[in-house]
Design a protein around this nucleic acid. Sequence first.
RNA 1: CGGGGUGUAGCUCAGCCUGGUAGAGCGCCAGCUUUGGGAGCUGGAUGCCGGAGGUUCGAAUCCUCUCGCCCCGACCA
Length: 431
Amino acid sequence: MRLSSYFLPTLKETPAEAQIASHRLMLRAGMVRQSAAGIYTWLPLGWRVLRKIEQIVREEQDAAGAQELLMPTIQSADIWRESGRYDAYGKEMLRIKDRHDREMLYGPTNEELITQLFRDNVKSYRQLPKTLYHIQWKFRDEVRPRFGVMRGREFLMKDAYSFDLDFEGAKRSYETMFNAYLKTFKRMGLTAIPMAADSGAIGGNLTHEFHVLAETGESGVYYDAAYDELAAKDAIDLEALSRLYAVTDEKHDPTSPQCPPPDRLRVARGIEVGHIFYFGTKYSQAMNAVVSGPDGNPVTVEMGSYGIGVSRLVGAIIEANHDERGIKWPEAVAPFSIGLINLKSGDAACDKVCEDIYRTLSEQGVEVLYDDRDDRAGVKFADMDLIGLPWQLVVGPKGVASGMVEIKNRATDVKETLSLESALARFARGQ
RNA sequence: CGGGGUGUAGCUCAGCCUGGUAGAGCGCCAGCUUUGGGAGCUGGAUGCCGGAGGUUCGAAUCCUCUCGCCCCGACCA
């Protein structure tokens, strides 16, 4: 993509409404614009990131055996009456009426819809287990939206729902998702700590929140230092992990026998990016989701639900990866891999080298954002640091004369001068 | 939903107290000079001063109502 024609409205100054780093940076880097309180337009750069995160989530859900579908954003009030949540949910649910005065709502979550779908189409235990998911926009009319996309009213969520014949099966489904979540967050370069949690409005008795550690997190978290060693390993030992103390502040109890001694107790702030629940037959019973069991008798299915805040992850990743100059994208979710900076646009030699690099890398499938603007170097460097692509490839007249270019790693800010050929080889696809 | 704040140019903000033709910096446009870390000079465009009502000869400024947005608390992916 050529920056001269890309829709990327960056801001030099910080918009007054943004209080935390990720919000400020998302506005300044031209990723989002607010349209109403807690409601955002995703601009091309932000949208690219959102899609990359979504794709990682999707791949790990698929790998865990979940099947993707897509449910609507608008739901009928009827099924919510069946589950008993139409009244229980309160003002957070956006209620609307259609032209016939039928009561509708913009879905804040999808347990009812998926349970309805399941009960209408699954009749035998032979069809179990099933885990279904979708990645869909939700609306929760939060009293106080804040922190940009971290707590928007409209947000993109991956929600999965498992159906099993019995508790043992449900527990397996839960554990499968638990592991998938750890992998998912790890792929995005995040440390997400699973915490025993309160089940809140959704209800149930087995539930974990996944918190990304960041200073600006909304929740206080307490965890055993041993977690860090465990998390560094590739294969996560779920049993070992589940024995470790890790709780949010409302559950923290220093007198608990599980609580580690002070020298091993880590106190931090966390951003909740995932939440998983086993809730048994709460919805299947209310909504009559029943299958025939092996003995021919009806069995009310055991359910769980599993959420990941996809749009919130964009903010969370920035909170965990930035400095005073801008964002530092982890490779896996970066909107582009390389920012190509032409220090002297209009200079024939510089232009030629840059065009060659841009074409060569693009043909190899490397995502390059080429700053070909007729602008001063300072502006280009500042914008590129702000946008925070993992690599910057700098081409200027001095280097061109001697066949050298400079590359900079945004994560470490380490610069390196090397020949054009070695730079191209470095960035060739698959390396 | 309680408490606090704030709406003036694309952004950051001054002007309001004490009413009298709408301002600055940055950004934007044109030209020239520039180009190795948010450039210099010259010229230019841009405002329902959030909205409605009122007071007044006259309102960004005073009064009333209203809406938006932000922050602090209780809830959530």
